[in-house]
């Protein structure tokens, strides 16, 4: 575990290097320990990949060194009490192909598989949320089967419809809002993944398990 200052208002706690999925339970445990026993001056706790970033208010009682010690204490407690409880499973309905997934054929061609097989692979896998960011509620998902790793589009689209499900290299994800985007769009979900009217606006959180379920256009249209 390393602690490194992120400017003068945050500390990045790194629990493992790179995209180590096995670190996610420890990331969640540290977040829980910090939330439960918030050190003085801590204003926000943000998990992402194998890190936890702790934001603090240096103007109101939080010194860097004491805060580092408090975080280390929390981490030690979190490790000691780490139990492998299942994180929530969120199912995301997806209408694959057609107007909802204009790049499905392209992904099929590039991966040398029939479109049905791409859908089966994408909806048959278990995914884990590694981070939420980039745009509001956007979840970086790990677990995409290697057979359907397809590079990003050479030219990003200037606007991707909200709910679009894409593949970008080894990653897959859902665009919660209409934004520019360079991923290959294979489908769309009617599920709202970000709602500013909710106290917890993002539906997905770091460590959540995700599965995609194929639905037809009628189910998509009927979704509420």
């Amino acid at each position: 575990m390393t602690l490194f200052p992120l400017g003068d208002s945050a500390i990045v706690v790194t629990l493992a290097s790179g995209l180590d999925e096995s670190a996610l339970p420890r990331v969640r445990a540290l977040v829980a320990a910090l939330e439960h026993d918030r050190p003085v001056g801590v204003v926000e706790i943000v998990p992402a990949f194998a890190t936890v970033t702790v934001f603090y208010d240096a103007a109101h009682g939080a010194g860097f060194e004491p805060l580092c010690r408090a975080i280390e204490d929390c981490a030690a407690r979190a490790e000691a009490t780490l139990v492998s409880h299942e994180s929530p499973l969120i199912e995301i309905p997806v209408c694959y192909g057609g107007a909802f997934g204009p790049d499905l054929a392209e992904v099929a061609t590039r991966s040398g598989l029939p479109a049905e097989r791409v859908i089966a692979l994408h909806s048959g896998a278990n995914y884990l949320v590694h981070a939420v960011g980039f745009t509001l509620g956007f979840a970086y998902l790990g677990g995409l089967p290697e057979k359907i790793h397809v590079p990003r589009r050479a030219t990003p689209r200037t606007s991707v419809p909200a709910g679009s499900v894409g593949i970008g290299g080894a990653q897959t994800g859902v665009y919660p809002l209409s934004t520019p985007g360079g991923w290959n769009l294979i489908g769309r979900t009617p599920l709202a993944l970000f709602d500013a009217a909710q106290a917890e606006p993002a539906r997905l959180g770091v460590g959540d398990r995700v599965r995609f379920r194929a639905i037809n256009p009628e189910e998509f249209a009927a979704w509420k």
Binding site: P201, A202, V206
Partner: peptide
């Protein structure tokens, strides 16, 4: 807007 970074805000 504070407190929603974990949701990407």
């Amino acid at each position: 807007r504070r407190g929603h970074r974990a949701a990407g805000v």
